[in-house]
């Protein structure tokens, strides 16, 4: 095994950047594969071996691998969320959740409409802050890969868009709760039973989904580029 020269490293980086990959995970893995393979051969065999690698890691293959990884990462996050959801709700926690929700309903019925509207904004602000925090953390990790591989295109973690999109979808659904009655011109909708039931159901769904998504991110952040 030998170390590649700077010139050889540049050739590898160029070859990989022509593939126009955007997934930091795939780029990192292919780059490591190329270097590990080429280090096993003498300098005189470098060109031949690089060509051999290029025949295996074609543009089409790399993009198919990237697409499959994106799909697999979505599945992985969902599986993690589901596992967390199943293990979270033990009997004491279920009791705690029911007590919390009862107090929430009582609290909700005692406050004014304006306060209700303001309370609904709190989760949106938290999610927005969380999104920004996740994005910055991932950006810092991916920046290092971008520097090593010398990628010309913008690259990001395959997990990142999936997580941020899910958080955004939940945020949008919460917004809809306020926007739809406004559009339909429902009078005093903040005091209506429909709104109370809908906001309560959405609150449970929103909290459960966001918490498991956050936990899934926390677990994956130890080993992935997010």
């Amino acid at each position: 095994m030998r170390k590649l020269s700077e010139q050889e490293l540049d050739q590898v980086k160029n070859a990989i950047s022509y593939k126009e990959l955007t997934s930091a995970e795939i780029l990192m893995e292919i780059f490591d594969h190329y270097i590990s393979h080429l280090e096993d051969f003498e300098e005189s065999e470098f060109e031949e071996q690089l060509d051999e690698l290029e025949d295996k890691f074609t543009y089409a293959y790399c993009h198919a691998l990237q697409a499959k990884f994106l799909k697999a990462s979505k599945k992985e996050i969902f599986n993690l969320q589901w596992t967390l959801f199943k293990t979270y709700f033990t009997w004491p926690r279920m009791l705690g959740t029911v007590l919390f929700l009862c107090s929430f309903i009582f609290f909700w019925s005692t406050i004014e409409s304006k306060t209700k509207g303001l309370i609904l904004v709190i989760p949106l602000v938290i999610v927005l802050g969380l999104n920004a925090w996740i994005w910055v953390k991932s950006y810092k990790k991916v920046r290092e890969i971008k520097r090593i591989v010398n990628a010309k295109k913008r690259i990001e973690s395959s997990y990142l868009s999936n997580i941020l999109v899910q958080f955004s979808l939940m945020t949008s659904s919460f917004n809809m709760l306020i926007l739809v009655p406004k559009i339909l011109d429902v009078p005093n909708f903040l005091d209506s039973v429909f709104f109370l039931v809908a906001s309560f159901s959405l609150f449970i769904l929103y909290t459960g989904y966001t918490l498991t998504l956050f936990e899934a991110w926390r677990l994956k952040t130890k080993s992935a580029l997010i």
């Binding site: 490591d32 499959k68 090593i148 080993s223």
Partner: peptide, 27 residues
């Protein structure tokens, strides 16, 4: 190999770890 590794990872049968090796990152 790589699609199989990614599939096993998504199914929760494999865990991953990223390490700095020489001047690159290895999974």
């Amino acid at each position: 190999l790589y699609p199989a590794l990614h599939k096993l990872e998504a199914e929760g049968l494999l865990s991953t770890e990223i390490q700095q090796v020489d001047n690159r990152v290895r999974k």
